[in-house]
C-alpha cells in the first residue's frame, strides 16, 4: 500500500528513515526520488545527504544544527509540497549499454555453480519458465524492449537496482539459494522484481543471462564518461540495453581497454511522472 502520509522512523542520532509505503511500486520510488530532489534543491543547512530506495528515503542530518523533530517537520513540509506523485518531475539521463545476451561467460558461471554447488535450471531457461515466455529469444526481445529506471544504488558502490519502465517487460525470478560465490563483472541479472548489473566480480544471487562490456564502476575515477565520478549511474537515470553480437561486444571491449570508448548517453532531461503514467495507460497488451 501507499501510505496516506509518509512515516518518519528515527534511526539513531543522525538519521531518519522516511517510508512512503510498503510495496514494490515505481510510484513509491518516484516519491522517494522526488523528495530527495526537493531536499537537494532546498539546500537546507543541517541536511547532509539522502539515499532513496524502492519505497523509502534515508536522510542523514547534522544534530548540531537540527533536532530530530525539526528535521521531520522540514522533510514533512517538503513531502507535502510535492503533492501527488503525478506532479513530480525528475532530472534523468538515458544510457545505452551494449549487451551480449545469452553470453558464454554467464553461461559458464551458471554451469560452474551447477557442478560445484547446486544443480539448477540454467538461468535464462528458468526465467522463461517462471514468466511463461516462448523461449530464450522471447526473453531477449522482452528484456531489451524497455528502458530501466535506476531506483537506487547500493550493496556495492555503483550497483544499480533497476525496474523496467515498460510494465510489459516486468519479469520476476527467485534468487539463488545458496548464493553464487562469484559473478562475472558486467553480468546483467534479475532477482525478485529487480534487475541489476554487477559492477565488479562479486558473489551474487540474481539470475544472470547477459553481459555488458561497458564498465559502470571505476575506482580510479579516470574513465571517459564518468566525469571524475567512480560510478556511472545516479538514482533517477535510465538504461536501455542494446543487444549486440559477439563481434560488436569484442570491439567495444577493446575500446574500453584502451580507454577510448564513449558511453552513449542522452544528458539530463526531465522525467515527468504524469506523462509516464499516461503512456502506461495507453499501452496495449499489458502483462499482469
Amino acid at each position: 500500500m501507499i501510505y496516506a502520509q509518509p512515516t518518519f522512523l528515527p534511526a539513531g542520532d543522525r538519521y531518519v528513515l522516511i517510508e512512503f509505503g510498503n510495496e514494490m511500486n515505481l510510484d513509491l520510488n518516484f516519491m522517494a526520488q522526488g523528495l530527495a530532489s526537493a531536499v537537494r534543491q532546498a539546500a537546507i543547512p543541517g541536511i547532509i545527504e539522502t539515499a532513496p530506495c524502492f519505497a523509502s528515503l534515508l536522510v542523514h542530518y547534522d544534530p548540531e544544527i537540527l533536532t530530530l523533530s525539526q528535521t521531520a517537520d522540514l522533510l514533512g513540509g517538503l513531502a507535502a509540497s510535492l503533492g501527488r506523485s503525478d506532479d513530480i518531475e525528475l532530472s534523468s539521463r538515458l544510457f545505452y549499454l551494449p549487451a551480449l545476451y545469452l553470453d558464454p561467460w554467464t553461461r559458464e558461471c551458471v554451469e560452474d555453480y551447477c557442478a560445484r554447488i547446486a544443480k539448477k535450471v540454467p538461468d535464462p531457461e528458468l526465467l522463461v519458465q517462471e514468466n511463461g515466455l516462448d523461449g530464450v529469444d522471447h526473453l531477449v526481445r522482452l528484456h531489451s524492449s524497455s528502458e530501466y529506471w535506476v531506483a537506487s544504488l547500493g550493496f556495492w558502490p555503483g550497483l544499480p537496482f533497476l525496474m523496467p519502465l515498460d510494465p510489459r517487460a516486468r519479469l520476476t525470478a527467485p534468487k539463488y539459494n545458496p548464493p553464487r560465490t562469484n559473478t562475472p563483472q558486467g553480468a546483467i541479472g534479475l532477482g525478485g522484481a529487480a534487475n541489476s548489473i554487477y559492477p565488479v566480480a562479486t558473489p551474487g544471487g540474481y539470475q544472470i543471462f547477459a553481459r555488458t562490456p561497458v564498465p559502470i564502476w571505476d575506482a580510479t575515477g579516470t574513465r571517459r564518461g564518468f566525469d571524475g565520478a567512480l560510478c556511472l549511474f545516479r538514482p533517477g537515470d535510465r538504461i536501455r540495453f542494446v543487444p549486440v553480437t559477439r563481434d560488436e561486444y569484442d570491439a567495444v571491449e577493446a575500446q574500453v581497454n584502451e580507454n577510448r570508448y564513449e558511453v552513449t548517453v542522452v544528458e539530463y532531461q526531465k522525467f515527468v511522472v504524469r506523462d509516464y503514467k499516461a503512456w502506461c495507460e495507453k499501452l496495449p497488451g499489458k502483462r499482469a
Binding site: 528513515l17 510495496e23 530506495c53 524502492f54 519505497a55 534515508l58 547500493g154
Partner: peptide, 10 residues
C-alpha cells in the same frame, strides 16, 4: 523487508 537505506550503526 523491501530493500531500504541502512543507517550507519544499524
Amino acid at each position: 523487508i523491501i530493500d531500504h537505506g541502512y543507517p550507519l550503526g544499524a
